[in-house]
Design a protein around this nucleic acid. Structure first.
Lengths: 194, 194
DNA sequence: TAATAAAGCTAATGTTTGTTAGCGGAATGG
DNA sequence: CCATTCCGCTAACAAACATTAGCTTTATTA
């Protein structure tokens, strides 16, 4: 990993834990293993690092939700849908980079318009668009009741998003959050699946 | 309004806009109309102000959700339920103090355990407990399908909570958010109400 | 191998920040 | 009416901060 990447990595960790204003350039440099002024050989300044982090988050977002590829095949049964959805959620919840990015965005969402928009994209649009497609697929197969897929996607994802946010701030409740999500998911299936 | 209250008021505004670390004691004092050191006649320090803000948020929370009073009478028709719920959500969304408190909590939720817990209480438990009671009331009246009221409360509130958060960070989308919430609410009624 | 660019370092700077010390006036209460 | 408490002020401080300047070493490349 290049120094430039190491800086981003360290900054993401620190920003997600202590916020942008709560993190000093020196702290970042410490983790990377260089002195603070050396950091300016790689980035113009602290804000530049934050921008680079948002850039990379947006890029990752594009890879994950931009193409149709990551939907996978349409689940054929209720249990399969539950299993595959729980895995997806569990991954989103636990993957360190996704988690840190989420925590960064949520804390800095009021800093500027770019971050506001990115936060909405990441927290709402992405997941909902993704599940809208999955649900649409299942509607076409006749295993989900006919309705507006986008609307059902909201019903499906909103409670999960809130529980993920909760487990971000209270990691000791992670298990509880997952159980909650599964309970809700089973309810969703009961209501909307044949 | 006493100086002590003015300080809390100014701090809430600034913290909610720029975050705790992004706000200086001097900025707070400026709004109040005193010099920064005078502030220490009222509070031990900056952190003390934050704690007082959380105290007052918790107190307000207790008043709003602690007693059974604020539920009002059980709505008798679908349209009445929609109307009264939209009013409640619209109030929560727009009331300046509630809004600023929400923005403060969301930004500082990782600062310490107390704020983490308060955030969960305010963002999840409170609204859900409240609507669980309303829904329970409507179940008893037979106008809502029999099910776990807490679970239905989550289905009802989660999408609204996310849209409220969105309109906090993108106020220009407020109208869109409200429409979204109403759409979701009507869907909820269609699915669960007779 | 010589020249150049990249990337580290130390030292330093100017600003901002939270906070304390101490002074003076105004309000309060016995 | 005097003593005390409250609450404002100025001055000052020490620490933390982001950033720059300039030197040295390492890596690249011609």
């Amino acid at each position: 990993m290049s120094t430039k990447e190491k800086i981003l990595d360290a900054a993401l960790t620190l920003f997600s834990e202590n916020g942008y204003d709560g993190t000093s350039v020196e702290q970042i440099a410490n983790i990377v293993g260089i002195k603070a002024p050396s950091l300016y050989k790689h980035y113009k300044g602290k804000e530049d690092i934050l921008n680079a982090l948002i850039d990379s988050a947006e890029e990752r977002y594009e890879v994950m939700f931009g193409s149709e590829k990551n939907i996978g095949k349409v689940p054929e049964s209720r249990e399969e849908f539950i299993k595959v959805t729980m895995e997806r959620i569990s991954f989103t919840m636990r993957d360190p980079i996704i988690r840190k990015t989420r925590m960064l965005l949520v804390q800095e969402q009021f800093r500027n318009e770019r971050i506001s928009e990115a936060t909405t994209r990441h927290q709402l649009d992405g997941i909902q668009r993704m599940f809208a497609k999955i649900i649409k697929g299942m509607m076409d197969e006749g295993i989900v009741v006919k309705d507006d897929p986008k609307l059902l996607a909201v019903e499906l994802t909103a409670p999960a998003v809130l529980q993920i946010a909760r487990s971000d701030r209270q990691p000791q409740c992670e298990k509880e959050c997952m159980e909650y999500i599964e309970k809700h998911l089973r309810h969703f299936c009961k209501v909307y699946m044949r």
